[in-house]
Design a protein around this nucleic acid. Structure first.
Lengths: 229, 229
DNA sequence: GACATAATTTAGGTTAAACTAATAATATGG
DNA sequence: CCATATTATTAGTTTAACCTAAATTATGTC
């Protein structure tokens, strides 16, 4: 019956579950606990909902083993991720939101907008292929380019890297980094990786030096800088 | 307990009821039937909900007599109306929505956005005091300027009037009028009001002549043109 | 390999918002 | 001013999404 563009999306909590599973597990499988923590919901509620999602063909749930997305579930999740990231981009770039505020608002909005809205917003924004965190924005067709970035904490001394994204889980770090110009796109040279206390020191294009402790270096994702672009 | 800015607004249906009552009755009172028709909900559901709204101090309901908004209910309704009209303005002016599409999308969005969003959107739009239909946008403080417009069907021959708003209930008319440049702000001279069949004929600034049947003339609201602005 | 701990599921209950069917109140027109 | 039609209300269900408490399964340690 239903096929392409249900203007009224699935109920908003269904979407939350799909997105949670996608975020936790990608193509693998997510445990009841993980989902319950991420959604701040009792584990029993998760078990329950997984049953319903399974009936609708959105997930596969093996009792006591966790749940993974079906093809349809994954598509649904990606549609929401696309919306979320486009909305975040708009809020940050045009409404002057800070990184702290943006996530919650986008979370609510992504459940209210239609596909038509998403389409037009993408146009308004010039069809960006990543959001201001550097996270890739899935296309309308549900394609997500593979992510070859890695955390700064895994970089090697001497390596030239470009900041690619900053984990949007951890809002407090975002503004700190933002103030120092450490935003996606920034080119860095890794000066020192001190095994002892896991501190990574880098130098930016302006010759400024910055040190990252383990926690911060794990939420800054970079790509190797090839010399191009 | 609660006072100024509940980020999570009342539930979305509560808002729908308040807005419906406000639209139907303004400061007067709305019947169960009227509300049930407007919201496409069974009359029994309305009676039920009115009970709950009364408990929350948002409406006063006299059995078999209809419901009217309390001060708090009116404030709540105006907040939603403000959101709705700001969102419509954005969709029409920046995302290229047509008048047909805009209402439904705004209806969904107005329940999802926070006060902070509304605030910032207003700023983005330059704090407009009316939406593209010409409807006044309540201020953040809940003030709504009184509306001195009247339907074109009540205009008199010879009168100079300015189109002030077009009823947004009736989407099919909107595009028809839009195509002919008959949008808010347009200056018209009333040439003839034929009692016989209630046809009103006007002339626009370009010398073009337009005739309106009863139905159309009732959804185009105008203000007397004083010569200013 | 038995057992404590942690994770999961089952069972049963709650709430908001809708519904239908039956009943009651009001309004209307001859 | 009464009979009928319209509008409202009550009572009893339904559904989705949550909850708690109790029972079950899985895991990791000695």
């Amino acid at each position: 019956m239903r096929d392409s563009t249900p203007t009224a999306p699935l109920s908003s909590s269904i979407g939350d579950y799909l997105k949670a599973i996608w975020t936790i597990a990608g193509t693998g499988s997510a445990s009841t606990k993980e989902i319950s923590v991420r959604l701040s919901v009792a584990p029993a509620s998760v078990t329950n909902m997984l049953g319903r999602l399974q009936e609708q063909g959105l997930v596969v749930h093996e009792r006591y083993r966790g749940a993974s997305l079906t093809e349809r579930g994954r598509e649904e999740a990606l549609r929401l991720v696309r919306r979320h990231r486009l909305i975040e981009t708009f809020l940050l770039e045009h409404l002057g939101y800070s990184w702290e505020e943006v996530h919650e608002e986008a979370e609510r909005l992504e459940h209210a907008v239609s596909d038509a809205f998403t389409q037009r917003l993408a146009e308004f924004l010039g069809h960006p292929d990543q959001d201001p965190h550097g996270e890739p924005i899935p296309t309308a067709e549900g394609v997500l380019e593979p992510d070859v970035s890695f955390p700064l904490s895994e970089a090697q001394a001497g390596q030239r890297v470009r900041i690619f994204k900053v984990s949007d889980e951890d809002a407090s770090a975002l503004d700190y980094l933002g103030e120092r110009g450490l935003v996606p796109g920034r080119l860095l040279t890794v000066r020192e990786v001190r095994e002892l206390d896991s501190v990574t020191t880098v130098e930016d294009e302006g010759g400024e030096s910055h040190s990252f402790g383990e926690a911060l270096a794990s939420s800054v994702f970079v790509r190797e800088h090839t010399g191009q672009t």
